[in-house]
Amino acid sequence: MTETPETGLATPSQRPRRLAVYRHARVTRLTHWINFLCVSVLLFSGLQIFNAHPALYWGQFGADSDPSIFELGADESRAGPPVGFARIGSSTFDTTGILGLSRNASGGFAQRGFPAWLTLPSWRDLAMGRRWHFFFAWLFVANLLVYVAAGLANGHLWRDLLPSWRQLRPRSLLQDVADHLRLKFPRGEAARHYNPLQKLTYLGVIGVLLPAMILTGLAMSPGMDAILPWLVDMFGGRQSARTIHFIAASLIVLFVFVHVAMALLAGPVNELRSMITGRFLISVEDKHE
């Protein structure tokens, strides 16, 4: 953008104009919102299931034979009111009011791993939580297969998500990290495409976290163990599979939070429009003399 000699202001023809580009195909947008629904329900129903035994182990047998590596609970052994705690390895943290011991509807405290407002349903009902979880787990898998098949067919996976060798160079990656830390987002033509960190993150989620979560979920199912007995051994035991499932799910939730935060910082209206209509507005400099 240039300035006029008299006023120092850009003339209308020299101001950046907004150009609408087609950024997301219909199938990408549809599977994106179905994924959002599935991940939300899976998170809340998964925490309902976890609350039935709020501890994680490494190995095959769990509570009776393997020490916990993560546990939520309430300590009622000392004088005074119980204290909620979160234990990671040998370190214990007071989490009263949030984890282990949280407020109930009557205003008192109830012993439960995660609070009621984070579980589906909000009351204790393991059977209903499992039904919600299993139904949306299979919907999630079916939706993921549609996304992958469509992405391979229309070139989205290899054209938009695979980083080029130039983008993988250390200098390019370090520059991209620096831009993200400074909240400097791409503009103009650069905004048409995913940056290297986005590509690597999406590939990590699609290629590592989602398969790990699906396979460990199957490994915890007695019915699937009868069909695929090697699945439990592949993860080092049923309790190890449960722990990996919890970690993978937690990383996916972290990804969602960062993803939403970046969309809000980059321009929520434009980002949301692109995922609803497919149209994304970019600024283009006019080249008039």
Rank of each mutant, 00 (worst) to 15 (best):
R131A: 11
A178C: 01
T31F: 11
T243D: 05
S68K: 09
M275H: 09
P115M: 08
G73F: 06
F36K: 03
S65V: 14
L265V: 11
W58T: 06
H193D: 10
A190S: 09
F140M: 15
K199E: 04
I214Y: 07
Y57H: 14
A219S: 13
E71N: 08
L218W: 13
T4Y: 13
L56H: 01
G129T: 00
T28A: 15
L181T: 03
L272A: 14
G107N: 06
T119K: 01
R124H: 10
G73S: 13
G204H: 12
S13V: 13
F134H: 04
R159V: 02
G97H: 07
F257Q: 07
L42M: 14
V205C: 07
G46T: 01
A190V: 03
F135H: 00
S106P: 00
P229I: 05
L37K: 00
P170S: 08
Q167C: 04
T28K: 00
H32P: 07
G188R: 09
G267S: 10
A149H: 07
P121A: 04
L72W: 00
G267L: 08
H156C: 02
A110G: 00
D66F: 06
D225Y: 02
F235A: 03
W117P: 02
T95H: 03
S90H: 06
L161G: 07
D66T: 12
L56S: 01
L144E: 04
F135A: 08
A263K: 04
A127Y: 03
R279A: 12
G80K: 12
I34L: 15
A74M: 06
G59L: 11
N143Q: 09
I69F: 15
S250H: 06
E289K: 12
A55P: 06
M224F: 15
A137L: 06
A178H: 11
P5C: 01
A142W: 09
G217N: 04
M1A: 12
F140V: 01
H288G: 11
T243L: 15
G97R: 05
F114D: 02
I244K: 05
S45Q: 00
D233T: 09
R112D: 05
Q239E: 15
Y147G: 00
S240D: 01
D75M: 10
L157M: 11
S172G: 07
G237K: 02
S164Y: 05
Q198S: 09
N104A: 13
G204S: 13
G236R: 10
L19P: 04
L43S: 13
S102Q: 07
T243I: 11
F185A: 01
N270S: 14
A127L: 07
A10L: 08
V269F: 11
V146N: 04
R171P: 00
N51S: 01
F140W: 14
D225R: 15
I282V: 15
L126Q: 07
S122Q: 14
R159T: 12
V258M: 11
M220N: 15
A190Y: 01
S164L: 06
Y22A: 09
W165R: 15
G204M: 08
L19M: 12
F257V: 15
R238A: 10
L30I: 15
